[in-house]
Structure formats: C-alpha cells, structure tokens
Write a protein that binds this DNA or RNA. Structure first.
Lengths: 155, 155
DNA sequence: TATTGTTATACTCTATAACTATA
DNA sequence: TATAGTTATAGAGTATAACAATA
C-alpha cells in the first residue's frame, strides 16, 4: 500500500518511516533487486532456465568454452554450485562438457547450438523485462543508476 | 567474444563483459546489496541481532507497539517468519508480547527499555557502515542513487 | 466462518568437506 | 603435494499448510 504523498525527494512516509536512516539504502537495494529478479524469473521460465543458468550462458556466449574453475571465478558461485548448474545445462541440452587436450582434469563447458539459440532468445525476452522494471526511469536516469551502482561496488 | 562493440558509456571490462545487457542492472543491484548487507551484518553482530531483527526494531521504534499482523504488512516477512523474529527479540529481552484489551487474539509486540537502547546503539553503529559502503559516492551521488531506486520501485 | 498467532513440514540454497582423478 | 571436478551432508531461509484460540 503506497500512500504516495506529495514529497518527491527522500520521502518519509508512514510505510517508510526511516527513509533517511543508514538502513534505507540497503532496503531500497533489496526491494529493487527483488522486483527485477522476480520479473526476470518470469521471463526465463518459458525457456526452462533460471537466472543462475542465464549468467553462465552469458559468460559462455561472451567468452566461448570455459572450464568450471573459470566459471567459478566469473560468477558468485562456488565450484559445487557450478557443478549443479552445468549439470542442469547439460540435461537441458544447452551445453556439454568437452575434454581439454593437455589436462584431463579440465572440462571445457561448451554451448551447444541449442544453447546459443536459447541464450539469444532469452536475451531478447529479457530486454523488455528490464525495460519494464526500469519504466519509471528515463533512459538517462537508467544509465545514471547503473553508473552509480558501478561506482559503489568499484567496478 | 563480445559482439557489443558499439556500447556507449557503459564500461565493458573482461570481468563484466555484458555491461549493457538487460541483466546488467540486476547483477549490479545484487552485488551492491550483497556488499551493503554483509557490512551491516558485521556491524550488527556485536549486538547479537541480524538485519531482519533490526527491521522489526526499527518499525517498533518508529510506530510504537505493533501486532504481528502489522509487522507482516510492514516487512517482507510472512507471519511464520515474524513469529520466529519476535521469538528471538523476546529471548534477547528486546521486546515482549503484551495483551491487547478488546481482542485476545492480538499480541502487541512492544520494545523493552533494553530494546530501545539496543536499537539506538545499533542505529549509531550502522551509520558509519552505510557511509563506508557508499564511500566511492559523493553525498550528492548517494542521495541521487536513493532517489533513483525509490523512483524505480515506485516509493 | 474468518482472523491471529503458532507449529510442523518440506523445499530451496548455500557452505563445507570428503573424495576421485589427474597433474 | 596441489588442482579440477564430483559427491554427500548439514545448515539457514522460506513457503506452505494444518492447527488452536478467539472473534
């Protein structure tokens, strides 16, 4: 229930009684992420994948085959989680584990043709979702938001 | 390989090869929240509470006694989670469940003196943590970030 | 019959460590 | 001895529904 009163900057409503508190930014980040994430979940469901799969597909699409150690380094997942994610991708026919000449410990996780196709379509499906989640923002504000977040996390 | 060569101002690093993708904002929100949350966890640990307790303490401090249905409405938790959180607060001596004259189903969750004190000190401890998490931002940028997030979530 | 709060259950995530096969 | 990947297990968090007391 959003009783949106007149104030525009740093609103302090009964629902959000501590808009200026040290916790406010954390609460805002969590709500914004939750909104974005659930919209993305809904967009990805028709493809049978979840966000964690998409992140890996994105890395593979961008970089070509990567071993699981690389995927650990490029995501927020540990190696046990990556195993499960790659298991899922293999079961869905989106990626395969290929042998790496020269080091038989490594598995080159490689997108299949179907994997490339699904990623491309999921990518396209994600765009309007992202646009909807940021609909209240102008394109300039959207870019400014991303810039500030990157500044904050030092990226 | 990165086909997004025409990207404008968004940084495109090897670590973040799809800075302009529809998922980029979600990833940024998650990372920013994670950084903020873990710093806050560390700050709250000395008080024996966690973020979910602090949120409830904040509501009680701002509004006075609330029943558990109200706490459900004012947080992201369902009633079962609120039961456990209030259990914790009672066990820690920070709040108590008081009878409500006129409706014996309700429990007025009420801050104790100790609860008020712990909230005040946790609030003070949180301020520098929040400042550190947003250290790369100027005060104006910090305010701009919160404004954009509020715009995005419609608050 | 509906609502508040409690309890029980099950399911998802995650974190960890033990284990294998290779190096 | 160290590394890549796998498996097993336990813990936290959450969502759900059944339940008791009260309205």
């Amino acid at each position: 229930m959003t009783t949106d009163t007149a104030s525009s900057s740093a609103a302090e409503t009964p629902e959000n009684p501590r808009a200026g508190s040290p916790f406010a930014l954390g609460l805002l980040l969590r709500q914004a992420h939750e909104r974005f994430a659930s919209a993305m979940d809904a967009a990805l469901a028709p493809f049978g994948i979840e966000r964690r799969h998409l992140v890996v597909l994105m890395r593979l699409n961008a970089s070509g085959p990567l071993n699981q150690r690389d995927l650990v380094a490029q995501t927020d997942h540990d190696k046990a989680s990556i195993v499960r994610i790659v298991d899922d991708l293999e079961r869905l026919g989106l990626a395969s584990r290929e042998l790496v000449p020269g080091d038989r410990r490594l598995r080159a996780v490689t997108l299949t043709d179907h994997g490339h196709d699904v990623f491309a379509r999921a990518y396209e499906a994600a765009a309007p979702v992202s646009a909807a989640a940021t609909a209240p923002l102008s394109p300039e504000q959207n870019e400014q938001l991303q810039l500030l977040l990157r500044l904050m996390i030092g990226a």
